[in-house]
Design a protein around this nucleic acid. Sequence first.
DNA 1: CCCTGATTCGC
DNA 2: GCGAATCAGG
Length: 166
Amino acid sequence: MPVLSPTWTNERIELLKQHFEAGLSCREIAADIGVSRNAVIGKLSRLNLTRGRSVDERRLQDRNQDRNQNRPSAPRAPKAVPRLQFEMLATIYGEADGPVATGPIDEANRCSLMELGENRCRWPISTPGAEDFCFCGNAAHDGQSYCAGHSRLAYRPNSRGRVMRG
DNA sequence: CCCTGATTCGC
DNA sequence: GCGAATCAGG
């Protein structure tokens, strides 16, 4: 079927149930299937697959169903999709740029401050003051304070401005 | 403040 | 029936 809008097909519902039972949140399910979070919830509700009838108090609204909220007066033009962990999830899910691939940094060369040499990575491990506080200790390029992996982390071209500049 | 869950209403 | 909007809670 080239065209048509197969809203909720059997497979779609299968995935929905699978992910739902898998313990994934509606946001994840929605992102995975490719629909909106409300769509997933709506379908689940329709299928009576709601995860427990939590908050019965929601019933209370039954009496407060006033339409006094006045909604047509709300110019919600910028319907920006919620952002946050979703970005992280999306990043590690598919559009991985590669920062995660930088992960495998040797932590077998950890050493204390005294053991730190001229060409040793000075990336702090753990929290300063902790018993096991130490440094990366990997081979650092000349002039650099960190090894290749940690240098990349230190020079994250992201966020506002540069972090660790100097 | 943001996010998640569930219900209700319009199409 | 589907999905957005809305409400409610953490």
